[in-house]
Design a binder for these strands. Structure first.
Lengths: 130, 130
DNA sequence: CGTAGTCGATTACAGACGTAGACGATAAGA
DNA sequence: TCTTATCGTCTACGTCTGTAATCGACTACG
């Protein structure tokens, strides 16, 4: 029961979502062309994943003749937000700064990352009102 | 290639790891006391999770009389690093700044987060020397 | 020395996931 | 109209995960 879009998107499903976020609506065949080669999947696999995503209500279908056109129902931003938050909550007690500090310590931040981040901080600080 | 701890740690298993990272070595009973109540688990569940973690070689055991003392074999820092990197790679094409930008846009950053982050950036930039 | 409690190991089982084949319906081309 | 290339759906199956019961071994109490 509970037909809400509460289900999580799995790793493999996520690859399909990326294709649809990049371009949509797409037919199953088009999605397959976009993602199957890179992952070494067969068409059947892609079709299964699309079905599951439809069941999870994260993508929608509109009939076009005998086939369907698939379109994302959740915005990529929302998905990224959910996943990021989940990680931050789970591993860093909800503190984004905690995650950041970790990335910093792990030397996972390049000089350009630092530049971008610093610029972003300033931007957020300044142009707050809105 | 040796038998590295290549297996992923699942959500439930992670809860057990947190208990061991917080304090170790611990017996199964002690781990259960630490995590079972909060998650509504029975002792049996905790014992299963410990077994799986041992199989995955992320925790080790040392016999103490008839029972075992469990100790983490992977550092929490390493785990956090791996998971963070995985997320950044998967969702933000490997760009930590991308993740940061997202958190920023999603207003998921508090003022204190910003303070901490800015301070960190400066620290990394300037006082790098060790 | 016997009995009860405890421990790790083994087994269980449903649901999610990765991966895919088979099948019936059908649109489009010959 | 007949055929064929597709489509979406259904079914399948091994693995992983969450959650746990059971069982044989052993410890400690009486």
């Amino acid at each position: 029961m509970a037909e809400e879009p509460g289900d999580r998107i799995s790793e493999a499903e996520h690859a399909v979502m990326e294709a649809l976020w990049a371009r949509h609506p797409l037919t199953a065949g088009e999605v397959a062309d976009a993602v199957a080669p890179a992952r070494g999947w067969g068409l059947a696999t892609v079709k299964t994943l699309l079905s599951r995503l439809v069941a999870k209500q994260v993508i929608g279908t509109q009939p076009q003749g005998k086939r369907f056109l698939y379109t994302p129902l959740v915005a990529r931003q929302d998905y990224l937000g959910g996943e990021s938050r989940r990680l931050v909550d789970r591993l860093f007690g909800g503190s984004a700064a905690g995650l950041f500090a970790h990335l910093a310590e792990a030397e996972a931040l390049s000089a350009s990352d630092l530049d971008e981040i610093e610029a972003l901080v300033k931007q957020i600080r300044g142009g707050e009102g809105q």
